[in-house]
Structure formats: structure tokens, C-alpha cells
Simulated scan of single mutants.
Amino acid sequence: MTAATSVSPASEGPRTAPIRSKRDTVSRAEGWRRRGPLLPALIFMLVVTQVPFVFTLYYSTQSWNLVRPGSREFAGLSNYVEVFRDSQFWTVTLNTVLLIVGTVIISVLLGLAFALLLDRKFLGRGVVRTLLITPFLVTPVASALLWKTSLLSPTNGLVNWALGPLGIHVDWLSEFPLASVIAELVWQWTPFMMLLILAGLQSMPRDIAEAARVDGATSVRLFREITLPHLRRFIELGSVLGAIYLVNTFDAVYMMTSGGPGVASSNLPYYIYQRAFLGFDIGQAAAMGVVTVVGTIAVSTVAIRLIFKSFSAGQEAA
């Protein structure tokens, strides 16, 4: 028995090796079978996103102005130096930050209020929900044109008509251009925040809130101690997603104010457009685009990691 037991491992060794190799081959084949259909999508994404970015990096090292044919030459990092020396670039960057932060904060607050309203049962809740979602379904160009011509027009705008009895008549797009663009974006993005927060409200366990009410907790304390901590991850996620999309805002600025007066309402995408297609300076426009992309990636990466940590902490606590 002892000899048999001592020989059996040696005799099983050559047998297990082919079995393991066969299993590895099967697992690799299974992995390719599952991931194979995703390969065309990955290639398409790389071609659509990374190839243009590589060309943008190349153009950012060129001194190339379309007004001067034959002036194209290698400029190294001089375009980036000129970008950081441009005072208007920093003004437009500040406008972009104000545009994003203002829109996200107001949209989250309004979305939270509407989500709390729709979380209650009342007559006509479905109709109200549909009406509140509608602005998010309107195309951005049509939304900007609607606000410019029908709401904020100094001659026949509905806002001035409503404020007329108070003696208020304002040319909103000229006197408050950035605030006007923010108002239009808030109108457009509030439904998105509302739907995200409403999903968080409906996923909250009801028994905890009922137990707190039995213990005598007021509605304000219930919201502060239970509802708001539960909604924190959803609010953070909505804020990050909204900020990432708002960085690319172009149509609202172009349709409503054209970045004016001066650069008072310009953001980075519109300023890059002006430099490329109105100033014909391809090199500096490409350098601005690279700086914008790198800054956006850095900020969004940090924010997404913080959100993932928050979600992980919430799951561990649960």
C-alpha cells in the first residue's frame, strides 16, 4: 500500500499536465468567444476617438495659419506657450468653470426638489413626470433657439412680459449673457438629475423611514439623516456625468450669444472654434484642444475614483 501511494503522484503527474493545458485552451477559447464580438466596437472606438486626437497632437506642434499659405512649419511647444500666455484663454476657462459649476449645482437642487415631489403619490403624477422630462428630450439647438427667441428676447420674450408689471425690462442676452446660457442649460439638464435622484429615492428601503417616523423623527430630520445620505452617491454620479457632458457645450453658446459680448459668455469649445475657423490658426486651436482634453481627463478621473470609493464604502456598510 505504501509503494502504491508513493508511485501514484508520479504516475498522475503526466496525466494532469495535458488536462490542465486542455482546460487553459478551452478557457482561452471561451474568453475569445465572449470578447470577440466586442473587438469591432473597440477598434471603431479607437479609430473614431484616438486617431483624431493623435492628429490634434501633431497639429499642435505646427505653426499653421490658413491665412498665410505655405507658412506651415514645426513649432515645437511654442503653441502651448502662447496658449498659457493668452489672457482671454484664462477668462474663457473661468467662464467654462462657472458655466459647469453653476449649471450642475442648480440642476441638482431643482432635480432633488422635483424628485421628492414625484416620489409622492398624487393625482396626475404621470402627466407631471412626462412634462418634467420633456426638456431633456428637446435637441440642444432647438432648446437654445427657443430660449433666445421666445423667452429671453428683449422685444417679445415671455420673461420680460411676465416681469413687465414690475417695471423690469432687461436685454438678458446682452446684459447677463453667461447667466442666460446657464439658465438654458439648467432647464435642459434638470430632468436628467431628477430621473437619477428619483431612481435613488425609489431604491431606498421604506422600512427604515417608517421606523424613524415611529420613533418620532420629523420630516426635516428624516431627510437630513436618512434620505440625503442615501442619495449622496446618486447626486455625485449625476454631478460628474453632467460636468463631463457640459464641458463640451457648444450649441447653446453659439445659438444664444455667439460668445459675446466679447468673450463674456465664451467657453473653451467655442473659443477653440473661434480660433480655428474664424482666426484660421490651426496650431493654437489644436494646442487649446489638447490642454482642454488633458484637463478634463484629469478632473473627471479624480472625480470618478472618488465616486467609486463612495460606492464601495456604501456597499461595505450595507
Rank of each mutant, 00 (worst) to 15 (best):
S203M: 07
S312G: 10
V220M: 11
G102H: 04
I307A: 05
R213N: 03
D215H: 05
L198R: 01
V67R: 14
A179R: 08
A113L: 13
A115H: 09
S6T: 11
N248D: 09
P154F: 05
S312D: 14
L152W: 06
I235V: 13
S21Y: 14
L178A: 01
T61P: 03
R305D: 05
L146N: 09
S300V: 11
V7L: 14
R221C: 03
A287L: 02
F176H: 12
F176W: 15
Q88F: 11
F192V: 06
Y59D: 12
R129L: 11
S11G: 10
V48P: 02
Q274A: 06
I105G: 02
S300I: 00
Y271K: 03
V67H: 14
L278K: 15
L131W: 11
V186W: 09
V220W: 15
F89S: 00
T16F: 12
V97S: 07
A113M: 13
P261K: 08
R221A: 05
L77V: 08
F114A: 14
M193C: 06
A183Y: 09
Y271I: 05
T227D: 02
E82H: 11
S310R: 11
F280T: 02
W64H: 11
L166N: 07
T301V: 10
F55H: 12
L173A: 09
L109D: 00
M1I: 03
N95T: 07
Y254L: 14
F308Y: 13
R120S: 11
I197F: 07
T91M: 13
F44M: 12
R125H: 13
W187E: 03
I297R: 02
V253E: 10
P229V: 01
R20L: 15
L173D: 08
T149D: 10
I226F: 03
A144V: 01
I197E: 05
F53T: 09
T130G: 15
L198F: 10
V67E: 15
W90K: 02
P140S: 06
Q274I: 05
V214T: 14
E184H: 08
A313E: 13
E73V: 09
W64C: 05
E316I: 07
V51N: 08
N65E: 04
L237Y: 11
G70M: 04
M204Q: 02
T257C: 10
P37N: 02
V97F: 14
L38G: 09
V128N: 07
E210S: 05
D86G: 00
G76M: 03
V181H: 04
A17F: 08
E184V: 14
T49S: 10
R35P: 03
R35I: 11
L152I: 01
A285L: 00
D119I: 03
T96A: 00
K22P: 00
E316D: 04
V83G: 04
V92L: 02
N160A: 07
K121P: 09
Y80F: 13
I282K: 01
F223M: 08
